[in-house]
Design a protein around this nucleic acid. Sequence first.
RNA 1: GGGGGCGUAGUGUAGCGGUUAACAUGCCGGCCUGUCAAGCCGGAGAUCGCGGGUUCGAAUCCCGUCGCUCCCGCCA
Length: 592
Amino acid sequence: MLKTHNCGELRAEHAGQQVTLAGWIHRWREHGGLIFWDLRDRWGITQVTINQDTTPDIHALAHEVRSEWVVQVTGTVIRRPVGMENTDLATGAIELEVTGLRVLNRAKTPPFYINKNNSVDEALRMRYRYLDLRRPAMQRNLVLRHNVIRFIRNYLSDRGFIEIETPILFKTTPEGARDYLVPSRLHPGKFYALPQSPQQLKQLLMVAGYERYFQIARCFRDEDQRGDRQPEFTQLDLEMSFVEREDVLDLIEGMFTRLVEEVSDRTLVTKPFPRLSYAEAMRRYGTDKPDLRYGLEFADLSDFVATAGFRVFSEAVAAGNPVRAICAPGCGTYSRKQLDELEALAKEAGAKGLAWMAIEESEAGPVRSPIAKFFSADQLAEIIARAGARPGDLLLFAADTEAVVCAVLDTLRREIAHRLGLDDPQKVAFCWVIDFPLFTWNEDEQRWDPSHHLFTAPMWEDVALLDSAPGKARGQQYDLACNGYEIAGGSIRIHDRAIQEKIFGLIGLDVEVAKERFGHMLEAFEFGTPPHGGIAPGIDRLVMLLAGQPNIREVIAFPKTQQAADLMAGAPSEAEPGQLAELHIRVVEAED
RNA sequence: GGGGGCGUAGUGUAGCGGUUAACAUGCCGGCCUGUCAAGCCGGAGAUCGCGGGUUCGAAUCCCGUCGCUCCCGCCA
């Protein structure tokens, strides 16, 4: 080893020892005859001193050294002089008095600061990702990611799970997300697909009798990017046999509770994890992934505003649509401009406008609002009571279709929480969302689509509904939400061929097509399949939240840009004609 | 596929019809023996993303284009 210690471990008790450190020059300060270096490696920073009086040759060499050069220094650990300790540094009680120096490598001046945590153009970060990753903040993120994955591996291994790898080259399934296809050299005109998740394979491992499987699995989906979506990402893929929903929820809840408390520095604010039915989540928060770091629940007014003189409300109710409100605490003094901003957001979410009331007692009544005149005193009192509004608060209303009301109020809720500083990244709030409808109606195709995926079992008591009212059947599906993100989704699976074929029928999957695509699954299910179920938490999103980061690029070593490109290596790139010929591929010009 | 934001010395920003294109930091040189965002002095460094247009005059206004980013659609 070129070092005896790392740059984060020397303390006062090491004083007097001869040690060798190696790392990068984080910062340098030259005071003529005395040079200070902050020497950095993955473990921390140690101050190094080079004295011209005692080591003139080393001083002369050190004078040439610049930021990010790689050096090896040998010397004596000394306690810093009284009053010169640096309490901001773990190693701040000591410094290394250098008696030997080797420049291991020089460095060009980096294109951006390694030693400052300021913002850098994203394209530049990606082009020089290896330098970006050298920054202490990124190293912290990746160390946390490692610790999270290590904790998960240990936790599950201790509970009888084994990790099994599944193929990256697999079979395309046109259901779900767009596949990444891989052309086959040996089979002209045929393609593998990269897995969107190891869903089928883990179920087959249950058929195979492994009972408890997990995998830190790379997944691929060729869809457009978001801050929380990359074309390739990592799931904790997990499946168990002979379990019911409660078994899976208990396992994951126990694991994530300990994970947050033992591996991260975040505060877990939901313990145990609240459970919401899908219907309840939509009614109270307008989303199936509510952020429970704060309340700001919706108030439903549909049942009594029909008689008010405000036609937007009465007509909505007459059409069978909901009227709901959200209370923004302390926002009653919002200016015209601020209200306009909220209205613009509401319109972006689908609203036609945004009605509001400021709770403000005056001679005219208890509220200040353009629509106050349409309501009786009793009605206003009822609205205020239901919304839990107090003087100084602002009420915002949505009256439209169920979907629009949910979307609008969800948008406003998150905006208000952000403006009020309620979305504290130091907090993590998990909640389970359960009792999802098994199907959602696809208006375009005039058929039922699976809400989760086609192997999700219906609630056993709802099986009869598959024939009578498929839209009412609930699935044994469960999602885990955290801070407004979907962090995991899973289900108890169908292990019965008859039910599986019924599902295929309902989603309009022709029997022959189903056999072609899923024949291996159907066949496997006939050889003694245990009841089984599982879940798949997204590792990137989880680590993002535990690291307090705003997007998953910050916790992925080499992420892609929003255009799904790697700016460092230059991927994707064109292939050699010879490669294409071998793969039986001809590139055609894109149509305009 | 659609909408919003950003693009100015190496980096981060200011300037938003007429400036010698400004500030900070970094970089280069010098001074400096207790700094830790060191300090002081001096210096170099920008075809204002790219292309076109409007104008007497464009970093600034308009159109197009490229890149990054946020969002909608999409993501079983």
